[in-house]
Simulated assay, not measured.
Amino acid sequence: MGKIEQRVSVSLKSRSYDIVIKPGLIDELGVRLQSLASTERVGIVTDRHVARHYLSAVVSQCKQAGLHPVSIVLPPGEKNKTLATVEKILDVLARERFERKSLLMALGGGVVGDMTGFAAAIYQRGIPFVQVPTTLVAQVDSSVGGKTGVDHRLGKNLIGAFHQPKAVWIDTKFLGTLPKREWIAGLAEVIKYGIIADKRFFVYLERTMPAILKLEPRAVMQIVKRSCEIKAQVVAADEQESDRRRILNYGHTIGHALEALGGYQSLIHGEAVGIGLVLEADLARHQGYCNSKTVDRIRSVVRAAGLSDRLTSPSLEKVWSAMQHDKKVSQGKVVGVWPNAIGRVRIVPIERGTFAEWFKTVSVGGSGRSRYTAKRGQ
């Protein structure tokens, strides 16, 4: 099949699957779907932005492979990640008489992937689906691991299910048509992996960020592959987030709160996580879990990626209240992930008093957006 591909296995016994990473993989989607599908009917779920770039080519490939593709084009953006949008997917599946063996393909970013996976999880109590992530956040994070779902007005991803894909197919060439703002935002998830699990990878990011920002192919392939390897290892050890998998939430406790406070419009996910990486490291320092040097290194690499490190809400009560709606809250306590050092973290609840003491020391400023504010697209 042409250019050399990289594979990362997600080992989950009967639910195991491969992540395939290959530039130009989009040209093989019809053949790959044919090898995986049990029926001719396949659903292609995407959004308007991605459809404009890629849908006609994918539909054509499916037809050439003898499949019967059904396109489901959704409105873009986190604000549309709702039960109402999932219902639109289910309406098409029912109208087109999809069966339990019919296959869905998520062609898009994390929002499309999460909603497609959730629809696949609940339609006829579960049908197979594959992930074809087109954004960096989706390629290195949300497409892997089987978390699916939608947002509630009180919090992000409060409604969902675990439903593993049959495969994850990553074409790094998708990133070339990604708006700069989306590309930069995705780097927050990449940086997260170095902090939580791999000191050497973090050092690589410190040294290579200029090449990464220029989308140099070898650097892009390296960060995508290593991020997927770390995610796969964590998921294999803890599929349903009962223990170790919670380390993947580093940066997300404050990050999700900031997303919610902005109505899922002022900050996109990676931008909010980037702020969360720095603030949660500083909060770890405040609690005595790590030293200032660790915080400074995290802040430096976040800034080098072009991401903001500034708190976007001046209100303690608003931020703390938004954190209370996080799905990781246990018995009313906010459970945080705190760096001990680069490559090591701990999972410990935090009290409101401790958070309030730290909050007084934090400066607030700016919109929190990265310096790249290009029009959002794919």
Rank of each mutant, 00 (worst) to 15 (best):
I127S: 05
I275M: 08
Y17E: 04
S14C: 11
I4P: 00
I347E: 02
G176M: 12
G176C: 08
H252K: 05
V301L: 13
F129Q: 07
L103E: 03
L90Q: 13
G251H: 00
N157H: 02
V345I: 05
R100L: 03
L277F: 01
M221A: 15
H68T: 14
G336D: 04
A167T: 05
V50Q: 11
I230D: 08
V45D: 03
G251V: 00
L12R: 00
V278Y: 13
Y193Q: 05
Y17T: 01
A120I: 11
A57R: 15
L277K: 06
V348F: 12
N80V: 10
A237K: 08
R15F: 02
E357K: 14
P314F: 08
V235N: 05
E280A: 00
V130D: 09
V20E: 01
T172K: 02
V348K: 07
T177S: 10
E182H: 08
R218K: 10
E87R: 15
L25N: 04
H49V: 07
G24L: 10
K156H: 10
R376Q: 14
R246G: 04
I159G: 01
V335N: 07
V59C: 07
S367I: 01
L33I: 12
L307G: 06
L316D: 12
N291S: 15
G145H: 00
H49D: 14
S16I: 05
R285W: 04
F202L: 02
L55V: 09
K156S: 06
G126D: 12
R32S: 10
P217W: 08
V302G: 01
L187C: 08
